[in-house]
């Protein structure tokens, strides 16, 4: 898979826990991208290369640089810590070209954007897309404390209608009430903590919103019982790859030099599908249907694991 070479041109603190990184190309114009796209940063941490996806938060019309926002995450396996503690302006990085699994449903009458915390990031690009799309958007921005409102300036500049919901003052957002007053032809987009996404999708389902009108992007996979180690046996190349609990199957394969196509890296898009010859699969994705999982002969390498101690893969 192709990569782009970029330099960290600037690092700015947006808040106590969020920093904005400006990435400039080292070789010509950067590819144009659609709002909602992400890039994957290849991070040279001390524990080995970590690949993490970050939403592009800048204008889709800007070709000179990309911007991403990184949340300092105490539970990070090293990616965001590396960026917060070790990365410096001037550093060179490899990134994947932009790819989008969370794009705007163009003909919708209205777009309701519900952002929780760092989930605001893909919507920052939405707000800088075509003017006639932005005019139909409404943003509900959920934060814990409104005194710390990352990207407030950017949101104000877009002139989009925005409601800030402060959870430490008002408690949880009343999602059902918010959705119940939406008009026909509204599409809802949600990005943020898993709990917020689950609540929005459950509410939309309960109210009877049509299929295809609810869009979401997860930044981390759904909660699952903690991972167990297992062995991946590659039938065609006759190799064994050990998958420890802290690595996904995809990451373990990459460490051992086996390349599998990927995109979102958290089980949301289906790109990293591989064939399984034997073994019980522990499906942890959030994009396949039950039927697709039931056949038992395919899995998503970036997120799913083995139910028992090994899988035989058709690789």
């Amino acid at each position: 898979m192709s990569t782009l070479s970029v330099r960290i041109a600037r690092i700015q603190r947006e808040s106590d826990s969020i920093s904005r990184f400006t990435l400039e190309s080292t070789d010509g114009a950067l590819p144009s991208f659609s709002a909602g796209s992400h890039v994957i940063l290849h991070l040279p941490t001390s524990g080995g290369e970590i690949r993490n996806a970050y939403s592009l938060i800048g204008s889709p019309f800007e070709r000179g640089h990309y911007e991403i926002a990184v949340l300092r995450n105490p539970a990070s396996r090293g990616g965001s810590s590396y960026l917060h503690l070790h990365a410096c302006e001037g550093d060179l990085l490899k990134i994947s070209p932009p790819c989008n699994w969370f794009s705007i449903h163009v003909p919708a009458r209205r777009h309701l954007l519900i952002a929780g915390g760092i989930g605001i990031t893909p919507f920052l690009a939405y707000l800088q897309s075509r003017e006639d799309w932005v005019r139909r958007m409404e943003l509900v921005y959920c934060v814990r404390d409104a005194r710390e409102l990352p990207f407030a300036e950017a949101i104000q500049a877009s002139r989009v209608r925005v409601t800030v919901h402060e959870s430490q003052v008002s408690g949880y957002l009343d999602i059902e009430r918010l959705l119940a007053r939406q008009l026909l032809g509204t599409h809802v987009y949600c990005c943020g903590p898993g709990g917020l996404i689950d609540a929005v999708t459950a509410s939309a389902e309960h109210l009877g919103w049509p299929k295809g009108t609810v869009h979401f992007e997860r930044f981390s996979p759904a909660i699952f019982p903690s991972a167990q180690p297992f062995e991946a046996r590659l039938a065609r190349s006759n190799r064994k790859v050990t998958v420890p609990p802290e690595l996904s199957l995809l990451e373990a394969l990459e460490r051992d030099g086996v390349d599998v196509p990927y995109s979102c890296r958290i089980g949301g898009c289906g790109t990293c599908e591989i064939a399984v010859r034997e073994g019980s699969i522990d499906h942890r994705d959030h994009c396949w249907t039950d039927d697709e999982r039931a056949c038992g002969k395919r899995m998503l390498a970036c997120i799913s694991r083995a139910k028992n101690d090994h899988l035989i893969l058709d690789l």
């Binding site: 959705l179 119940a180 007053r181 939406q182 008009l183 026909l184 032809g185 509204t186 109210l207 009877g208 919103w209 049509p210 009108t213």
Partner: peptide
């Protein structure tokens, strides 16, 4: 009717 209908109208 459609103009004023809610998102879940059928």
């Amino acid at each position: 009717l459609m103009r004023l209908a809610p998102a879940d109208a059928a």
